[in-house]
Each structure stands twice: as C-alpha cells, then as structure tokens.
Amino acid sequence: MPAYRPPRIAASEITPERFFLDRRSFLAAAGGLVLGGASVAHAAELKASASPFKVDEALTPEKDVTSYNNFYEFGTGKGDPAANSGGFKPTPWSVKVDGLVGKPKEFGLEELLALPLEERTYRMRCVEAWSMVIPWIGFSLANLLDKVEPLGSAKYVAFETVVRPEEMPGQSGYFQPLPWPYREGLRLDEARHPLTILAVGLYGKTLPNQNGAPIRLVVPWKYGFKGIKSIVRISLTETAPPCTWNLAAPDEYGFYANVNPAVDHPRWSQATENRIGEGGFFGSNRRDTLPFNGYTEDVAGLYAGMDLKVNF
C-alpha cells in the first residue's frame, strides 16, 4: 500500500485561524461571546494553538463545511442539519465518562474547553465518496481518557450522542431513519492514537450545531460516520461496542470503517471521492481516495496482520 506522509509544517509558520476571520464573522463571534448561552453562541471565537497535524491541501470553504452535513438527528438531507438545528441547545453540556475506568467522571463543557486546544487540519472522507478538508479545533482524546484512568480490562471505547426529540426533529415523528441514540466505538488503541481528537470547534469558532455541537469525535483515517456528534457519554468496555451504522447494515458499514479505496461499499466504489466545494460543475473535483485517507504512515501499524478486506 503506498504510504502518504502528511507534510509537517512548523507550528510557527501557521497563521492562527482567528487572524483570518473577516470583520463580519468576527463581529458575529464577538456577539456570540457576549450572549453566552444563546443559540448564536456556536459562533463564539475559540483560541487554539497550532499543531503539526495539518494537511497541505486547500481548505473546504466554511460555507460548505457548515451546510453540507450528515447528521440524521436533524434530517437525512445534506442541508437538513443546517436548516433544522437552530433550536438545539449545545449549552449547558456535560459528557459522562464511565465504564472500565478508575475514576469515572462527568465533565462539564467548560472543563473540556479548558483542555489544551489545538487546531488540526484533517481530511474528512465520508463513506458516501465525498470529502472535505476541515480545520478542526479540539483536544486529544487520549488526554481525556488519561484523566479517568482506564482499567487494564478496558479494550474498547463506546460513544453515545444526545437524545433530544424536542430539539432534534429527526428523533421524533413517524419516520425515524435510525434507532437512537446514535452510537459509535473505537478500539482503545485507536481512541488513544495521537490523531484522534474530540473536536469542539472548526474554522476558529466553536462547533456549529449542524457539525455536532458542542463536542464530537474526529478520527481522520476512518469514514466520517465514525465521527459521532454531540457526545454525552463515553464508556470504556471490554467487548466491541454496538455501532449504529454497523447494526443497521453490517455488510455495508464495518466496525473499523477505515478509509480504504480497495474495499468498495456494496453499492458504490470507494476508489475515488468528490472533494466538496472544489472544481465546480465541470472541473475535476473527483480524486483518488488514499488508503487510511492519507494517514497510512501514522496508523497502518494499528492494523498489522489484519485482513482489512475482512475487517473493513
């Protein structure tokens, strides 16, 4: 498998995202700070240090990152999350971390935002064969796991999304696309990998509701559906936790869900992807999909000896 090495750019060379905020979004961000818990709070500016994890590819425009989303709790259309998440209240918020840990704890959002935040520009490859490049702000999941002291018996990490039918229209009504809560899981070593983060912002601001406010998982070498949004619970377990899409269609969505151009989805090829917001209508925005989404060098070791066609 060809290895791809993401270029490492010195932290000092990276201009913090907040310096390129234009006047309007700066004002919106400032307004969000003033209003605190109001619904515009998701525009609040977020300070983060630069990180060497930065893909050297053009960023997907913020407009696309925040308007083209899969977040079935707000509807199945790509524009639904942006259109229907206005009533969602990402504050106050807390995340319960429990299971096979020495010190289970419920973390308040403020506490999580106080962790050392980094800006990480990652590729995001959706299982539907489209992709983006997103400047996330977040902290290493390992950092959080250390605080609860996982027991030796812990092998997996389970994640759970909030259930709020009154604020999430996709969770109520006659047609509900998935059983709630949305669940995802990682092997403990995947969860502790330096690339794995819990994101609390993007483009220099706190996460918009449609992107999984106030806190979501980002695992850049896996398909996007592993990146569970609006997390309320993280549990360490001994056995592989149930994962929503894997349960819905086990032949289509594996537990690992590592980006792999050689293993097609039964209904479409995974060899290429459409980069959202690029190339336009006629130009070439279809590009080859990279093994492990371009992070082979960093993560291939996690799967040494495994048949990735079986463990897809």
Binding site: D64, Y68, G79, N274, I276, G280, F281, F282
Partner: peptide
C-alpha cells in the same frame, strides 16, 4: 445554477 456555482455542496450530485 450548477454552471454558475450556485448549487450548494456537491453541485454535480445535486444536479
């Protein structure tokens, strides 16, 4: 709309 860049997100798929 597609040719003038006014279709949101994945313009080709939308079309």
């Amino acid at each position: 709309l597609g040719a003038t860049g006014q279709l949101p997100g994945n313009a080709v798929k939308e079309f």
